[in-house]
């Protein structure tokens, strides 16, 4: 028996909107720790790892570890039917091949339930090795989204270079080139507006903007984004989900030939 009640149902709606275009089908894993997902895109270039900790749910009942295969497009369709203020409850009986999403309006005057068929998904669970990152960049998530969007109108790839001076996002395309430099800026009114560069070593990596733009669909989940870079290993783009966990995107770099 599984029953997860999330008062801030909009979080789950936002999570689905941020991953449904990157991954088609995925297994949601439910354990005492929380509700989690790990899935790669079909080309094995990007991976998404989600954790919503059990403490973040108003009610969390998961009698035994369960893995539920879902089509994320269909799940997003169902969650779109929940209001932004609705409380969302996920329910599944042992051995059932369906999951039920229950939406309650905040005043309890409207209750809806949507039942979705589960699917069998063969997915490999990948071990993500602990990595030491050369540079960790924390910046407003809306600023990062703006940069990725702007640069993708000029080129297909971005070079992210971190130096003592700051972080530089560069692209080139048929019509020209573009460079955006963000300097460390911690003298702001609100901490979430700061740009912080933790930089033990300079690093420069190239990534496909198409994927980074896809990751920025998670922007509504968090005011800030944390980007961890190290030479020749995947970048991690992390959006923290307040009091609940995180959504992390891993992206393999482009390699010079």
């Amino acid at each position: 028996m599984l029953e997860l009640r999330l008062v801030q149902g909009s979080l789950l709606k936002k999570v689905l909107e941020s991953i449904k275009d990157l991954v088609n089908d995925a297994n949601f894993d439910c354990s005492a720790t929380g509700f989690s997902l790990q899935a790669m895109d079909s080309s094995h270039v990007a991976l998404v790892a989600l954790l919503l900790r059990s403490e973040g749910f108003e009610h969390y009942r998961c009698d035994r570890n369960i893995s539920m295969g879902m089509n994320l497009g269909n799940m997003a369709k169902m969650l779109k039917c929940a209001g932004n203020d609705d409380i969302i409850t996920l329910k599944a009986d042992d051995g059932s091949d369906t999951v039920t999403f229950m939406f309650e309006s905040p005043t309890q005057d409207k209750i809806a339930d949507f039942e979705m068929r589960l699917m069998d998904i063969d997915s490999e669970h990948l071990g993500i090795p602990e990595a030491e990152y050369h540079a960790i960049l924390i910046m407003p998530s809306a600023e990062f989204a703006r940069i990725c969007k702007d640069l993708s109108s000029i080129g297909d790839t971005v070079v992210i270079s971190v130096t003592k001076e700051g972080v530089k996002f560069s692209t080139r395309g048929d019509i020209g080139t573009a460079n955006v430099v963000c300097r460390q800026n911690t003298t702001v009114d609100k901490p979430e507006e700061a740009t912080v560069i933790e930089m033990p070593e300079p690093v420069s990596l190239t990534f496909a903007l198409r994927y980074l733009n896809s990751f920025t669909k998670a922007t509504p989940l968090s005011n800030t984004v944390t980007i961890s870079l190290s030479s020749e290993i995947p970048v991690v783009v992390e959006y923290k989900i307040a009091e609940m966990g995180y959504i992390r995107f891993y992206l393999a770099p482009k390699i010079e030939e």
Binding site: V45, L126, G127, P234, A252, K254, E257
Partner: peptide, 14 residues
């Protein structure tokens, strides 16, 4: 020119 790498060589099956 640059080539897109994949995640397979970075992450192991667990």
């Amino acid at each position: 020119s640059s080539r897109q790498s994949t995640l397979d060589k970075f992450f192991q099956n667990s």
